[in-house]
Design a protein around this nucleic acid. Sequence first.
DNA 1: AACCAGGAGAGAG
DNA 2: CTCTCTCATGGT
Length: 192
Amino acid sequence: MELYNYLFSLLGRQAWWPADSPFEVAVGAVLTQNVSWKNVEKSIETLKRKRMMSPQAIAKAKLSHLESLIKASGFYRRKARTLKELSKLFISSGGVGEFFEGETAELRKKLLSIKGIGPETADSILLYAGGHLIFPVDNYTRRLSKKFGICSSQNYEAIRQCFEMELPKDVEVYKEMHALIVEFCKRFKSEC
DNA sequence: AACCAGGAGAGAG
DNA sequence: CTCTCTCATGGT
């Protein structure tokens, strides 16, 4: 894909989303909804410091307590409930690793059934935490798609399949592409 | 001090 | 399906 080569030569490798565990990635995906990553880092640090960064700990924590720990990343009332539901899903699947052994489409449905997890968050979790071959479409991707005329439709699924069609079927490329788009739009706001 | 940030849900038209 | 409102904190 031309856009990928252009962004990569412009910005270099992003090596996005360093985390201690796939669960931490999933938590970050929920917390970052419509909020800058800087806010999310605070909440993640707090959760780790309080030894709350595990499905078991979050699943059994008091809702009000969990809310106070993630307050810094906004929308904390809904995000706390979402994190508890997500944790329960992982636990009932036998663990985070076991959950991601399932089929992509099936896992996607399970994630989308949780209130507070929409298409982009579900796909980000599948790609960055689970290593599944699926491309997340955020607002930046929509804008670039529109500006460069990459896809005719603005529908989420259409754009997703459009990018998946043009990109090499490689999880690392998907991860880089999504990160490159976000970094490009952050650095060149006027272009995006 | 208004504006936006790595969205999602609910409701209306 | 598209548009609009709400959710909430923290940085410019």
